[in-house]
Every structure is written in C-alpha cells, then in structure tokens.
C-alpha cells in the first residue's frame, strides 16, 4: 500500500520558487508515495512563534493540524518548517484536545530529504552529472531534526558529481526568518562571509535544503557578483530540484 503524503509546500516555495514544490512531488512519487497538496495551506507559524506570539501561532497550528492530520505523513521541503510543525505540541496545555493531535502530527512530520532516505529508503539510481557541489547545512534541519547525512547519501550516488568542501558549512547564513529584515545589517555581515566562503569553495553548484537560506545566500551572491560585473560562478539550487532534474522522466 502506498503511503499517503501531504505536502506542506511552505510559503517561500509557494511564492517564490514553485519548482522546488514540483521537484518534491516528483521525488515523493518516485519513492512510491501518494502525494496530495491541500490547497488551503498557509505557513507553519515560525515568524509568529519566534516573535513570541504564542496565541497567534496556536491559531495557525490548529488550522494546519486540521488540514494535515489525515495523512500518513506530512512532508515539507524545508527543515525549519518541519521542525516548527514538530514543536506545535509545546504550545497547547495538556488538557487542550489539540495537544494530543499536535503530538500525533509531530510524529509523522518530516523534512523532505530525510523522509526520502530514512522512511522511504529512497536511493538514486542511474544518475549522472558532471559537476562539483558544496553543501550548506541549514541550521534548523541540522540541529533540530538531525538532517545531515541523508542528503549526502543521496548525492553520493550521482555519478560524476563531486563534493567540494565548504568552510563553515554548518554555520548560520544570517537568514534567521524575521532576523534578516529586523537586523538587516548584521545579517548582511553574516551572509557576506557565507558568500565569501562559497565563492572560495568554487563549486559549480551550492546545494541546500531550505529555501530561506538559499534565497538569502543567492541574493547576496547575485549582488556581489553584479557589483564586480562578473558571472556568478556558482549556481544555487535546492537539493530536491537537482535530484528531480536527474530523474529519467525529466530527461531532455
């Protein structure tokens, strides 16, 4: 029996990079899952939660729980959104009926790449790409969900793809949700250093599993290389996009 997976798209993917969402669907289907996308979805509530607005977060959480608890699994192409959904149970008092429901949802919510590897035993078959890559390990996925080896395992099986070490690959890129606009100048210093390290690594592609970090990094890299009037030497991709591109169905 195929597992029923509800895809939580995340607001950034929904707004700015739908290709990541479609890549996620392709990979999940390739992993033999039955994927549904509830159209009435919004945000995981992180901006409210991290601003201390627990009441607001609760209201967001209730809606998300109602919408997604019917699935066998909930999968998001983002470590930080998946980690947020896993934290919903902290919000509700013990006697609130949503506490139990939040806990149950937390147990079946996963970040996409770790879901593919840990739950679906998904492997990359017969893929070739002659390129080099560096990996940015996004903080929430890494430290809250322990997403680290899973993407590496998938990428290792792509023939011709070579890793280039990135200095500070597990360090924050300075995105931090509302942080990057609230403390724009500090964030800028942090992401500038990240971009320096990426450019020094000099890989063809920078990969990661969280669009927030990736758009922060790429946006800065764009600005820097533009200013220096040169081509961006490294392109930035969500790991799901790269993996989906290499599927036989996408052979062009």
């Amino acid at each position: 029996m195929k597992a029923n997976v509800g895809l939580f798209v995340t607001c950034l993917v929904n707004t700015l990079r739908p290709s990541v969402g479609f890549a996620a669907i392709q990979l999940l289907e390739d992993a033999d899952c039955n994927v549904s996308v509830p159209s009435a979805q919004s945000c995981c509530g992180q901006p409210a939660f991290n601003s201390g607005d627990d009441e607001g977060t609760k209201a967001i959480a209730r809606k998300l729980i109602e919408r997604f608890e019917g699935f066998d699994y909930v999968v998001a192409p983002s470590g930080s959104c998946a980690a947020m959904i896993r934290k919903f149970d902290e919000l509700f008092e013990n006697d609130d009926p949503f506490a139990e429901r939040a806990k149950s949802l937390a147990g079946k919510t996963f970040e996409l790449l770790s879901f593919l590897v840990d739950i679906c035993d998904y492997t990359v078959v017969d893929s070739t790409l002659d390129a080099t890559y560096s990996y940015h390990h996004s903080c929430s996925g890494l430290r809250e969900l322990n997403v680290h080896q899973q993407p590496m395992k998938l990428l290792k099986d792509i023939k011709g793809l070579q890793a280039k070490p990135l200095k500070g690959s597990t360090e924050c890129c300075g995105f931090g949700g509302t942080f990057c606009v609230k403390y724009s100048d500090i964030s800028n210093e942090v992401v500038s250093e990240k971009v320096d390290n990426i450019l020094a690594a000099n890989a063809d592609i920078l990969l990661g599993g969280d669009l927030g970090c990736l758009m922060n990094i790429e946006g800065k890299m764009n600005r820097v290389t533009d200013k220096e009037a040169r081509e961006k030497p490294t392109s930035v991709m969500h790991t799901a996009e790269l993996l989906a591109d290499l599927l036989p169905s996408n052979d062009s």
Partner: peptide, 8 residues
C-alpha cells in the same frame, strides 16, 4: 531579539 535561533 537579535538572534537567528540557529542553535549553534
């Protein structure tokens, strides 16, 4: 407030 909550 000035923290990215990155967990390091």
């Amino acid at each position: 407030s000035a923290c990215t909550l990155n967990g390091k």
